[in-house]
Design a protein around this nucleic acid. Structure first.
Lengths: 234, 234
DNA sequence: ATTTCCATTTTGTGTAGACTTTAAACTTTT
DNA sequence: AAAAGTTTAAAGTCTACACAAAATGGAAAT
């Protein structure tokens, strides 16, 4: 059969299923009919039903298990997706002019806390890069970053005066695994100075660890401007 | 052909494509071969290639447009997916015992700032619920919430002494639209008291606005325990 | 009563092929 | 040139069918 106006598409099925859950017709924890039966009901193939249910499961509405069937999740595990933009894009999306400035870039022995954090050997060296990201002339983010030299030997020749370490790394080393955290920290003297804040001001802070095939590549702390909020809708 | 050991699955294709992007073989902004050609290369059907590329696009690695083809995103818009668990689950995942306590629950006229925030009429009423979530006996989260009575009339009969407002709302109005923000705030006198912190301590804070079919349902502020971090891996 | 094993059900994934939709690129007209 | 129309290549989706893999529930063995 050709897909004409009256054909049920996987989108229609998704909508119908969601509507039935919302209306209470399909209660939380209850089992849905199996794919074959739904295919008959919607007069389409099982393939189409499968796609609809698979996506709803991805989106956190359903739970599916072979042989056990598909059930409505009682507490819809809705996942918030935060897009992690690069600072430049974030500033430009705010309608601002992005400006970058290098503060310092030094090769040094990895400090103890970093060795612990990244599972480095005590004598490994890192490139310590500090830099600022501005929105026009307003400080937007202060970045404190360490790059493991053994993992990215080219870093010793990188010119971080002209390109930010994040953009450089993205061009240079692909990464495979990332751990990203957000927390509230307190502006110490240096952070306060760079972001033009009072000392002890609460600062929204991100920490990112990046690995390439199990090798630690970089650790960075990002201190955001006062009043910054990370927002998403779903 | 049957799917035997040597068959290329959409997973294999995803991996291979990612590897080629990482290795630089497929540069950012460059165009991938079209699905048909890839199908030939991987000796599978276009359907299978399609699924692989579609998922990679969903995950933020590729951009696909009809007729234009598939290209590697220059700034991989990787999306961090934070699962937003209910406090109970979060505490239990930490190995703790979850305990809930109501602080107060009062019906009142919506304050001006809330009217502005939720686009309420100036005379609308809200249920103002304050409560605590504990990990054992340690304060974990202090929650300050307003529920729009016109949107959820049953709320006046809800017994928030025995069930948290979030869990009650999920049972009552399950499918909603949400705007979620995170920021760093400063513990005022009351927050500090509830979370057992010094005044002015930085506090990781979440704000959530919830709508049902365009109607504002609830606004809540969640103040997290000292040292809290929201973490994800990808 | 408990464990082990097996049949069966349900989702997971693949093949092969067709039609649809979008939008880029080209062609014609103004 | 610029605008309007046309072609066409690429992704998007569906059909129809097949075999694979997991896990449940019951049967058999201990």
């Amino acid at each position: 059969m050709t897909q004409s106006n009256e054909t049920t598409s996987y989108r229609d099925i998704k909508e119908t299923v969601l509507a039935r859950i919302r209306s209470g017709e399909w209660q939380p924890d209850s089992l849905l009919p199996n794919e074959q039966d739904l295919a008959v009901e919607f007069s389409c193939t099982r393939t189409t039903v499968n796609r609809a249910l698979r996506e709803l499961a991805d989106e956190g509405f359903l739970e599916r298990r072979r042989k056990a069937g598909t059930r409505v999740l009682s507490a819809p595990q809705r996942q918030a997706r935060f897009t992690i933009p690069m600072v430049r894009d974030e500033v430009e999306a705010l309608g601002g002019i992005y400006r970058y400035a290098l503060v310092s870039s030094v090769a040094e022995r990895a400090p103890e806390w970093l060795c612990a954090r990244l599972a480095l050997k005590p004598d490994q060296h890192v490139m310590h890069v500090r830099c600022m990201h501005f929105n026009g002339n307003t400080p937007f983010q202060y970045e404190d970053r360490w790059i493991v030299i053994d993992s990215v030997p080219q870093v010793v020749n990188a010119d971080f005066a002209s390109i930010g370490p994040n953009e450089w790394l993205i061009q240079t080393v692909p990464f495979t695994n990332v751990e990203l955290s957000f927390l509230a920290s307190r502006a110490d003297e240096s952070v306060a100075a760079f972001l033009d804040l009072p000392i002890d001001e609460p600062v929204f802070t991100g920490e990112r660890i990046t690995w390439l095939e199990g090798q630690p590549v970089t650790f960075s702390k990002m201190y955001f401007t006062a009043g910054y909020r990370m927002t998403t809708q779903f």
